[in-house]
Amino acid sequence: MEFRLEGNHKIMKEDTVILGVIGSDCHAVGNKILERVFAEAGFHVVNLGIMVSQQEFIDAAIETNAKAILISSLYGQGELDCDGMRSKCIEMGLDDILLYVGGNLVIGKTDFKIVEQKFLNMGYDRVFKPEDDLQQAVQLLKKDITQKKVNALQAGQDERRTKAS
C-alpha cells in the first residue's frame, strides 16, 4: 500500500470505511450519495445498505480492517439503535475504530448541541446533522484517520523505548 498526499493530510490509499443505515430504517437515497462522496474522496467504501444491525457493522469492520464506521439514521430512532455500539466495538476488539453518526437522530426539534452531546457521550467520535457539508465530513474523516495512525506509531515507539530501557 502506498502513501499519497491529499491536502494537508497524508492518507493511506484506500482506507476502508463501513457505511450503512442502522436499525429498521430503510432510507436508501442518502446512503447512495454518501457512498459516492466517500469513494470519490479515495476511500474503499463497504456499503452495507439499509436496515443494518450493530453486529453487522462490527463484523464487516473486523474482516476488512476498517478505519471507521459511518452510521446513518433518518427515522428518529437513532438514539435507541446507536446506543451500546462503542462498548460492543471494544468487546469485539475494535478498540481504536472511529465511529461517525449522522442524520435525523432524534424525534422532534431538539437543539443539535444537546443531540451531539448525547451521541458523544455514547462514544461516537463525530455527530452530524442533515444539513452538514459532506466535503467537510470527508476532510474531518481524513484528519481523524491520520491522527489515529500517528497515535499508533507513537505508541509503537514508546513501547520499543520501554523495552530497550
Partner: peptide, 8 residues
C-alpha cells in the same frame, strides 16, 4: 480478513 483487511 478480506484482501487488505484484517491482519491482527
Amino acid at each position: 480478513g478480506t484482501d487488505g483487511g484484517n491482519e491482527v
